[in-house]
Amino acid sequence: MSMVLRLWDANTGQLTFDSELAVGGVCLGFYTPPTGGGSITFPDIVGATGFALSAGGRGTLYTTDNDLGYLRFNFNELTAGSSYALFAK
C-alpha cells in the first residue's frame, strides 16, 4: 500500500499539494518554528531549495536560503505555534 499526502486550503478548498504529483522533493518532517519567529536549519543538506506547507494547507510566511552553506528555513513571528511540513529538493 502506498501513502498519499494531499493538502487543501482551509478557506478555499483548493488543493495546494499532492504528493502523487510532486517530483524530486523529500519531506524533512513536521516542525514548529520558534516563538517570535526564527530559523530551522539542516546542516547536512547543502545546495537544496526548500519549501514549507502548513498542516492546514495555508500559505506560509517564510524564506529559504543557503547563506550558511546549508539549507535554512527562516520563519517570521506570525508563524509561531503552527506546524509545517518542510521539504527539500
Rank of each mutant, 00 (worst) to 15 (best):
S2D: 10
S2F: 13
S2N: 14
M3D: 15
M3V: 03
V4Q: 08
V4H: 01
L5D: 01
L5W: 04
L5C: 06
R6Y: 00
R6K: 14
R6W: 01
L7S: 02
L7C: 02
W8K: 08
W8N: 06
W8Y: 15
W8F: 15
D9G: 10
D9W: 06
A10Y: 13
A10Q: 14
A10E: 15
N11G: 07
N11T: 08
N11D: 14
N11P: 02
G13D: 08
Q14C: 11
L15R: 01
T16L: 13
T16E: 12
T16M: 15
T16V: 15
T16S: 13
T16C: 14
F17R: 00
D18M: 04
S19L: 03
E20A: 10
E20R: 11
E20V: 00
E20P: 02
L21N: 11
L21W: 02
L21T: 05
L21Y: 01
V23F: 07
V23N: 11
V23S: 15
V23Y: 05
V23I: 09
G24V: 12
G24P: 02
G25N: 15
G25T: 10
V26P: 07
V26I: 14
V26T: 14
V26C: 11
C27S: 13
C27R: 10
C27K: 04
L28V: 03
L28Q: 11
L28F: 08
G29A: 06
G29R: 05
G29E: 04
F30T: 12
Y31P: 09
Y31T: 08
Y31E: 02
Y31A: 00
Y31S: 00
Y31F: 15
T32R: 11
P33S: 10
P33R: 08
P33F: 09
P33A: 07
P34V: 05
T35K: 10
G36Q: 04
G36P: 08
G37R: 01
G37H: 03
G37Y: 02
G38Y: 12
G38S: 10
G38C: 13
S39R: 13
S39W: 10
S39A: 12
I40P: 02
I40C: 06
I40G: 05
T41N: 07
T41R: 07
T41K: 09
F42L: 09
F42A: 09
F42K: 11
F42Q: 07
P43M: 03
D44F: 07
D44Q: 14
D44N: 12
D44K: 12
I45W: 08
I45Q: 03
V46T: 11
V46A: 09
V46Y: 12
G47F: 03
G47W: 04
G47A: 06
G47V: 04
G47N: 06
A48H: 12
A48G: 05
A48E: 09
A48C: 05
A48Y: 13
G50T: 00
F51Q: 05
L53K: 06
L53E: 03
L53R: 09
L53S: 04
S54T: 03
S54I: 00
S54N: 08
S54V: 00
A55C: 08
A55P: 03
A55W: 05
A55V: 12
A55H: 11
A55M: 09
G56K: 05
G56A: 08
G56I: 08
G57K: 04
G57Y: 06
G59V: 07
T60N: 02
T60R: 01
T60M: 08
T60L: 10
L61D: 13
L61G: 09
L61V: 07
Y62R: 01
